[in-house]
Each structure stands twice: as structure tokens, then as C-alpha cells.
Design a protein around this nucleic acid. Structure first.
Lengths: 154, 154
DNA sequence: CATTTTAGTTATTGTCAATAACAGTTATAA
DNA sequence: TTATAACTGTTATTGACAATAACTAAAATG
């Protein structure tokens, strides 16, 4: 995908470009790593979130994942069709459902977690342990910029 | 977008997840940074590549960018409609076109480069110069894994 | 109660990319 | 030559996805 006879101009100097390429690299191998079945990183992350936070409503789940409510409905449908997620009636408010893993969903998640861990290890296999920790630290700094205003002498 | 009352399970331990979030963060601000007009990172990168490598054919451009030929046609149409890219007839092979920037395209690219540089700086503004260099180094290692097989004692 | 708000679904639309089919041109080879 | 194959670019078709709006049912408000 990288052609040494081509001039990439400004692109190699942009962090955003490097991030995008790494993200695509991760994404492109993901399906194969988890045995496909239409499982994308985003869909996997829904299973992960439902597993760790059982009983969320669909709106809550949508908000956390940055999805619109219709998109959440569809993704929940996806997992429900595979019998991994169930909508539980909420007796206190009959408009909403509590979203839960089924037994099959718990098992699917456990398997997926192992496959995803291995996938992630392959992605970063060219880095040493120290380098990986450093990379994670820096990415987290990008994702959660701590101080809006740089600390002054104070 | 990050809710401290939620358990994200395995996700925070995955480098792929951090990369995806950073990439989305970059992407989501990009349009505004460049004054929109439908300009996405990918479309910008086509302008950059055409500027640095004038005369490429559409198949060459598609290959470099990882696009299908129809997708390249559409994206070239996009820039041609904005009078930034021109298809030059190729006298040696009348099937193909040489893709070039127009004068307006060169000017648009120069403006875009400045805006994109500023956008990229904002993205990484929470890092020091050393940290940024380190991040770029590590990302490049992910994107271009140097040695398939770790060096043994030699 | 009547009205408004909320949860979830369905319908509609638009974007985007992939595949296949197509037209025109060039290369190959009988 | 001439016919066959391969290649460049476009168009048509399809499918995945997400966004918006419209809709139903069920609270909440007053």
C-alpha cells in the first residue's frame, strides 16, 4: 500500500494521516481475526459495553456509543438475531427495555475477547513492551486532553 | 463522549480502540477546520497526491489511494467539478488521462495545506514536541513494521 | 384529564463504495 | 491484416450504513 516511487507530499508529516492509516490497518484485519460473521469493531464494542453494564436502556447505550437511536435499534437487532443480546421488559417503565447479554452472548463475548486480544497483539507486535506502553499513554493523551490551559508558573 | 460512570470492559486496554477513537477525533474536526465544502481527509489526500505527482493515470491514482477505479472516477469528478483537477488527454494512449492540478487547484491545495497543518497541530496540542515526535515514530512503526522476524543474536 | 415529553421503531433519504457490465483503445498473435 | 485478448475509464446496479423525520405507545406534567 506504500509506494516508494510516489511523493506523498504533506501527508507523512500529519499525525492525523498516520492515525487514520493505523486505524484502517487495525480495522482491515479485524474481521478475519474474529472469524467475521459481520462482526465489526463497533459491534464488538456494543457487546463489550452490554456485558460490563447490564440493564442499560437503548438510549443510554446509544449515547455512550455515539449512535443515533435508530442506529442503536439496528445494532441491537443484529445481536438479538444472533441470540447474544436480549431486550428485557422494564416493569417500572413499559416504554423502555433493559439490554442484557444472553448466556450465548456471554459465551460469544468471552470468545471474542480472546480473539480481539490476539488481534490487538498482532497489530502492535512490532513494538516492545515499553514502546507499547508509551504509545498507549500518548494516544490516551490525545483522546483525553487533560488540561485545556497549560499550567503556568504558579 | 467518555462517561466515567460506565464500565468500558476490555476496550480501554486495546490499542486498536484508542487508535479508532483518535482517528474519529481527528476526522470529526476536519471538516470544520478546512471550511467544509465536502472536503474530507481522503479527498484532501487526493489533491495532495496529484499535486506532488502530476500526470498520474486514474488507475495509478486509484491504486496508490487504495480506491477502486469507479471510486477514483467519482473523486476526480468531485475535484474537477470544483475546477481543481483536470484530465489531460494522453496522446500516446488515448484510453487514459493524465491527472493534473489546475491553477485554481494549486491555490486551493496551498490554502488547504495551511488549514490542515493547523488542524493537525490542534489535534496534538496536548503533547510536547518530544512527545509528538515519539508518537509519530511509534505510529510509523505500526504502519510500516520493519522486520517481519525479530533480529536474533546474529 | 389534556398536553407534552420520552422510548423505541419504522420509513425515507442520501452517501459511499464494491461489483459487474459496457465502450473505446491498445496489445498480442495467428 | 484480422481477430482475440487485455486494459482504461465510465456507467449501472446493488448493498451497507447512518441520519432525519414521522410514528406508536407509554410516562410525566400541570
Amino acid at each position: 500500500m506504500f509506494d516508494p516511487s510516489i511523493d506523498y507530499g504533506l501527508l507523512p508529516s500529519l499525525t492525523g494521516y498516520a492515525l487514520r492509516r493505523a486505524s484502517i490497518l487495525d480495522f482491515s484485519g479485524f474481521g478475519e481475526s474474529v472469524g467475521d460473521r459481520g462482526i465489526t469493531p463497533l459491534r464488538y464494542s456494543m457487546l463489550e459495553l452490554v456485558g460490563a453494564n447490564p440493564g442499560l436502556s437503548q438510549v443510554e447505550l446509544a449515547e455512550i456509543m455515539g449512535l443515533s437511536r435508530p442506529a442503536a435499534t439496528l445494532m441491537i437487532d443484529f445481536w438479538q438475531a444472533r441470540e447474544c443480546i436480549a431486550r428485557h421488559a422494564n416493569e417500572a417503565d413499559r416504554r423502555s427495555y433493559g439490554i442484557h447479554l444472553t448466556d450465548a452472548g456471554r459465551q460469544a463475548l468471552a470468545t471474542l475477547q480472546q480473539l480481539v486480544r490476539e488481534h490487538d497483539s498482532r497489530l502492535t507486535s512490532s513494538l516492545s513492551g515499553d514502546e507499547l506502553r508509551q504509545l498507549r499513554l500518548l494516544l490516551d493523551r490525545l483522546n483525553h486532553p487533560a488540561s485545556r490551559r497549560p499550567r503556568t508558573k504558579n
